[in-house]
């Protein structure tokens, strides 16, 4: 068997690389007024929003980069962006 480096990279292995340190804010899913439109779920660039049942979503904070798309796109304002401790709000 020959030795290769970088020829066969494990699928899905980027999961080992958490990106939580990227963000200054994170979304808080209030799970009150959700209508199940899935805009947060389908629109997340990371794919770290997950669906628990028809009208209940949450975010995996290991990977959330705090882009704010889910909160901005939510038609019923059921997601708040919350400052990380130690972070200041950027204008």
């Amino acid at each position: 068997m020959r030795i290769f480096v970088g020829r066969r990279v494990k699928p899905g292995s980027s999961l080992e690389n958490t990106t939580r340190a990227w963000r200054g804010k994170h979304p808080h899913y209030k799970q009150k007024d959700c209508i199940g439109c899935q805009r947060c779920f389908l629109g997340c660039p990371e794919g770290c929003v997950y669906q628990m049942d028809k009208k209940r979503f949450d975010v995996n904070l290991d990977y959330c980069k705090g882009c704010g798309i889910c909160a901005f796109e939510c038609p019923v304002e059921d997601i708040d962006m919350v400052l990380e401790t130690g972070c200041e709000d950027q204008p």
Binding site: G12, S14, L15, E16, N17, T18, T19, W22, R23, L42, G43, C44, P45, E46, G47, C48, N60, D62, Y63, K65, G66, C67, G68, I69
Partner: peptide, 14 residues
Amino acid sequence: EPGHTGCAGCGQAI
């Protein structure tokens, strides 16, 4: 999968 290093809010990743 997540854990990629695209910019926060990357449209292409979506």
